[in-house]
Design a binder for these strands. Structure first.
Lengths: 232, 232
DNA sequence: ACAAAAGTGTTGAGAGTACACCCATGC
DNA sequence: GCATGGGTGTACTCTCAACACTTTTGT
C-alpha cells in the first residue's frame, strides 16, 4: 500500500473486476460444470464460466454467491476462492481481473437457471468440455486440479452428494473425480474409521439388488486431516 | 462474464486493485516479515505490508515482482499468489481489492530497501509483529498458515535458505517455522531418502564444534510429493 | 582434555494395500 | 433360482516415531 500514500484515486486508471464461479456437480456418475453460452462478441456463441462484475458495496464472496444464485437458485452451498486471473489481455476489450471461485452443488437440489435471465446454460461433463471463451479453459483446468487435490485430504467431496447417500454412491463420486478405481473394502473401512458418516437408519429402495444403507455426513466432523509430511 | 454482454465499461464504477507482497525471510533462526511504515493517514505511522497498484499493462505476478524489486532488490525468488482480499471497507478511503502474494527470500541475498524510495522498512519476527494497518493482520496470519502448510508437503522451505546450507541449519528452519522440535536422526533420514539434496563437498568452516557438510538443493527434484489421503 | 556441534541405526507400532466370498432383494 | 448390487476381514508391507552414543574440530 506504500504507493497509496499521497494517493488520489482518480489519477490511476482502474481495471474492471469480475468474479467467475466454476460450478461443479455430479450427474450420472460424472463430474459436470455449468457453463453459459455467450450471445455477443467477443467469443460469440462460445461457452463461458458464469460470472459478473463485483459491485462496489459487496464482498467478493457475496458477489460469487449472487452469481451462483442467479445461475442455479441455490444458496448455502460450498464455495471457495480459487485463484485470481489477471493477464493483461485475457479479455480483448479491456483489462479485466477476475477472482475465480469454485462451487460444489448437489445436482439434485438445483433447478437450472430457475432464477436467471434468458441466457442459455448447460451442464458439461469435465472430460467433454466445449471450447470455452477467454482464458476459461485455464481456469477450468485449475479448478479441476484443485478439486481433485482437496478431495484427497478434506471432506469437500460430500458437498457434491445429496443429503443421504449410499457408500457405493460416495465411492463412485470419488472414483469419477479422481479418475481411478478404488477398493471397496478399503474405502469402506477407511471412511468408517474416520467417523464422519452417520447411518440414517433408512434404506435405499429404488434400484436392483440388495438395498443399501443410507448415510449422511456429520457436518461437525473435522474437515481436514493431518497429511503425511514430506519432512517431519 | 454473462453480465459483460452488451457491456459498456464506463457504466460500472470500478474498484482500485492493488498487489500486496508478504515477504518472508529467516534471520537468526526466526521467521521474519518485511513491513513498511506508513507516512500518511489513514493508519499513519503504522506498519503495513508492501504493495502498490496494478498497472494496466502488467500481469498480477509482474506487479508483485515489481513491488518485490522495489523493496528488496532481489529478483528470481519464490513468489506465489496467496489470496485476494476484497471486503468493501478494508480501506476506509475507497474500495480496494488486493491480491496478496507470498515471497520467500534468503535473508543474506537482500540489501533491504536498496532499490527503494525513502520509505521506512524493517524486518519483524512473526511472533512479535507490531499492530498493522488495514486488514493486514489477517493477511499476515493467512500467509503464515499457508507457509506452514506448504512446508509439510513441498520443498518451499529451501527457498528461505542460502545456496549452501548444513542439515542442522535446514532443520532449524523447519523447526522455527513449524514451531516444534524435530528429531535429528529422523529428520536427516527422511530428507536424505527424498534425494533432493546434493553434497557440495565443502564444509562449513565458521562456528565451533565439528565442521558440517554443506548441501544444496536440487531444483530438478520433484517439488511436491504425494500425501496420505483421507480416503483412497 | 574438554566443550561444542556433527553424524549415525534399530526397533516396535500403526497405517496402507491387496485380496474373495456370502447376503439381501426383485424379477 | 438367478441376476444384481451390498456388505464383510485378514495378512503382509511399509512408513512413522522413539531413542543414545561416537566423531571431529577448536581452545
Amino acid at each position: 500500500m506504500k504507493e497509496m500514500e499521497g494517493y488520489d484515486a482518480s489519477k490511476y486508471e482502474r481495471p474492471s473486476v469480475t468474479v467467475d464461479v466454476v460450478i461443479f456437480a455430479l450427474h450420472k456418475g460424472d463430474l459436470h460444470v455449468l457453463l453459459i453460452q455467450r450471445k455477443r462478441p467477443p467469443y460469440q456463441d462460445m461457452w463461458a464460466i458464469p460470472g459478473g462484475f463485483v459491485q462496489m458495496n459487496e464482498s467478493l464472496e457475496m458477489s460469487a454467491r449472487r452469481e451462483l444464485m442467479e445461475e442455479t437458485a441455490v444458496a448455502d452451498v460450498y464455495l471457495e476462492q480459487l485463484y485470481t486471473f489477471g493477464a493483461p489481455n485475457r479479455d480483448p476489450r479491456t483489462r479485466v481481473i477476475t477472482i475465480a471461485y469454485i462451487a460444489l452443488v448437489p445436482f439434485s437440489t438445483i433447478n437450472p437457471k430457475a432464477g436467471d435471465d434468458a441466457a442459455e446454460t448447460a451442464w458439461f461433463p469435465m472430460n467433454k468440455l466445449p471450447t470455452v471463451a477467454f482464458d476459461h479453459a485455464e481456469i477450468l483446468g485449475y479448478a479441476f486440479t484443485r478439486l481433485q487435490y482437496k478431495l484427497e485430504y478434506t471432506t469437500v467431496g460430500f458437498e457434491l452428494l445429496p443429503d443421504h447417500f449410499t457408500l457405493t454412491e460416495l465411492q463412485h463420486a470419488y472414483e469419477s473425480i479422481l479418475g481411478e478405481k478404488l477398493d471397496k473394502r478399503n474405502f469402506r473401512n477407511k471412511i468408517m474409521a474416520a467417523k464422519i458418516l452417520k447411518e440414517s437408519g433408512k434404506m435405499k429402495q429404488e434400484g436392483k439388488g440388495r438395498p443399501a444403507r443410507l448415510y449422511h455426513y456429520r457436518k461437525d466432523a473435522a474437515a481436514e486431516i493431518k497429511t503425511r509430511r514430506l519432512f517431519p
